[in-house]
């Protein structure tokens, strides 16, 4: 503690300094205390706002439905059994197909983009900037912009009509194509960025070695670049697949709400149907399926040679 000044005005400061020293003394020689202090805020946040609501929903999914919403006394597993109905399984199946297609399209479109960006060149920063640019506006606004692009009297159709390339407008909006276009547009950056990160870390000397050893460009890509970028591909695929599985805005706005997805089903249960337990149960079933798929996927990959997500 500072003893240089007897002035009473320094006393509070000295007290604070002392407090600070005592606080840091707690960590001396105790790495676990330091670790907990660093992790603590984030962990509490997750416990409070992620795990907490999740547990609440799990609890709700076993309760009886209240006629006017929320839940009433009594426990049941009927909401989980109800999901076995072909009606709901059909919606789930369609949603899975949609999310999988979206992931594959994003991968096919996103990998070359990530490759070009990672290869460097003059436009690297500009291209990266362009990938991130859409995040500057809200997803809702961008989806509405797609409506203006794709509708019968929208930009695409009026341009093609005025160029004489088509005689009547192509019906794009409110088709499965529009939903897929919206999903791919929305989630493409989530595929590009992780793949770019993996590709950028790739040691060029490995490619040189492959070349020296006689591998042609295609073989170099397939046997060196692609396997080493798999962590990025895996991360990107998960980042695209999971949110597209839960999307409900895009099918509503671009698909004309004619094709119900699992996200729309859950949303309806919490609003117009006032069946919170069934909505919770449906969410948990989807979550469990995703979890099983992801864990299985990662295990299989971890069993493979030298891959870390």
């Amino acid at each position: 503690m500072s003893s240089s000044s007897p002035s009473p005005f320094r006393a509070p400061a000295s007290g604070l300094v002392a407090l600070r020293r005592r606080f840091f003394a707690l960590f001396r020689g105790r790495p676990e205390t330091t670790a907990w202090t660093l992790v603590g805020p984030g962990l509490s946040w997750m416990l409070l706002f992620f795990i907490g609501p999740l547990l609440l929903m799990l609890f709700y999914s076993f309760k009886q439905r209240g006629v006017y919403g929320v839940v009433v006394d009594g426990y049941t597993i009927e909401h989980y059994l109800r999901f076995a109905d072909p009606l709901y399984l059909g919606i789930l199946w369609r949603t899975l197909k949609m999310a999988l297609s979206c992931t594959i399209i994003c991968l096919l479109l996103g990998y070359p983009v990530a490759y070009v960006i990672a290869a460097g060149g003059r436009f690297k920063n500009l291209l990266l900037f362009l990938v991130v640019l859409p995040f500057w506006t809200s997803f809702l606004v961008r989806t509405f912009a797609m409506i203006f692009l794709m509708r019968d009297t929208g930009l695409i159709n009026t341009t093609l009509l005025s160029l004489g390339l088509i005689d009547e407008p192509i019906a794009m909006l409110y088709t499965p194509f529009a939903v897929m276009a919206g999903l791919v547009y929305g989630f493409l950056p989530f595929m590009v960025l992780p793949i770019y990160t993996s590709l950028e870390k790739l040691d060029p000397s490995l490619l040189e070695a492959a070349e020296v050893l006689g591998a042609r460009p295609v073989a170099r890509f397939l046997r060196v670049t692609l396997p080493l970028s798999m962590p990025g591909v895996a991360a990107g695929s998960l980042l695209v697949f999971i949110p597209s599985l839960g999307s409900y805005l895009t099918p509503d706005l671009l698909g004309g709400a004619k094709q119900m997805m699992i996200g729309n089903l859950v949303q309806n249960q919490f609003t117009s149907a006032r069946n919170w337990p069934f909505g919770s149960a449906a969410s948990f079933i989807v979550m469990a399926l995703v979890l099983v798929a992801v864990v299985g996927f990662l295990r299989k990959r971890d069993a493979g040679p030298g891959s870390v997500l």
Binding site: L87, Y88, I91, K258, M260
Partner: peptide
């Protein structure tokens, strides 16, 4: 409400 919701889901599906 539950019956209505089921029928509406069938329409939408």
């Amino acid at each position: 409400t539950e019956l209505w919701d089921r029928i509406w889901t069938e329409v939408k599906a």
